[in-house]
């Protein structure tokens, strides 16, 4: 098993490479997906360089929260779209460029069986950020996540849990994350599949 984590570009910029490499290896990760948040035209066109390491493998991802910028995007890297309310979730699911829907959770439940069906048909992935369950509205987020996961399991659609960390304190050890996910009525083998790099790299 080669576990992966997803982090924002800021974490790489603000820390030394040796510290990053040592931290991720001690946490149990071998693949790191680095996300660049696209808010302006400049962030689309500026260079996105990743460090090289023999022990860790880095991959690129782009995160959009604006459809207009997404329509200008022309590259082969995978795209994350930030979900939330029903309108944004539906836009993301219907857009062919979007590969991953991030946090389809909001004040009211905004993800139903039809959404799960479409996620499966279009081979998209639903991603949950781990800080949803430690920051604000923990109970609400846990309830909605449990419901969404049950729907995705019925439709056999893929979903992932990652830290999406901007700083070190948001990172999670792989053993702690696995034990945490057992509480969502997921089996250990299934959890291993969710956390393995193949789910994003295939």
């Amino acid at each position: 098993m080669e576990y992966f984590d997803i982090i924002y570009e800021e974490l790489l910029e603000n820390n030394s490479f040796k510290k990053i490499e040592d931290t991720f290896l001690s946490l149990g990760y071998k693949h790191v997906f680095v996300v660049r948040e696209i808010n302006t035209q400049e962030s689309l066109t500026s260079q996105f360089l990743l460090p090289k390491s023999k022990k860790l493998k880095f991959h690129k991802l782009f995160l959009f929260s604006d459809l207009k910028l997404l329509n200008k995007y022309k590259s082969l890297e995978k795209i994350i779209y930030v979900g939330g309310n029903l309108k944004e979730n539906t836009l993301a699911i219907n857009n062919l460029k979007v590969n991953i829907l991030l946090n389809p959770i909001s004040e009211k439940l905004s993800f139903d069986e039809q959404s799960a069906n479409m996620i499966k048909q279009q081979n998209k992935i639903v991603a949950f950020k781990t800080s949803l369950y430690t920051d604000r509205f923990v109970l609400r987020n846990l309830k909605q996540t449990q419901f969404i996961i049950d729907l995705l399991k019925i439709k056999q659609a893929d979903f992932i849990f990652s830290s999406f960390a901007r700083n070190y304190e948001e990172l999670v050890d792989i053993n702690i994350l696995k034990s945490f996910l057992i509480n969502f009525n997921l089996e250990e083998q299934f959890i291993d599949r969710l956390l393995d790099r193949k789910i994003l790299l295939e």
């Binding site: 369950y133 696995k178 945490f180 057992i182 509480n183």
Partner: peptide, 10 residues
Amino acid sequence: LNQFLGSLFF
């Protein structure tokens, strides 16, 4: 043990 490790998440 699993529950303890899971609780460290918080």
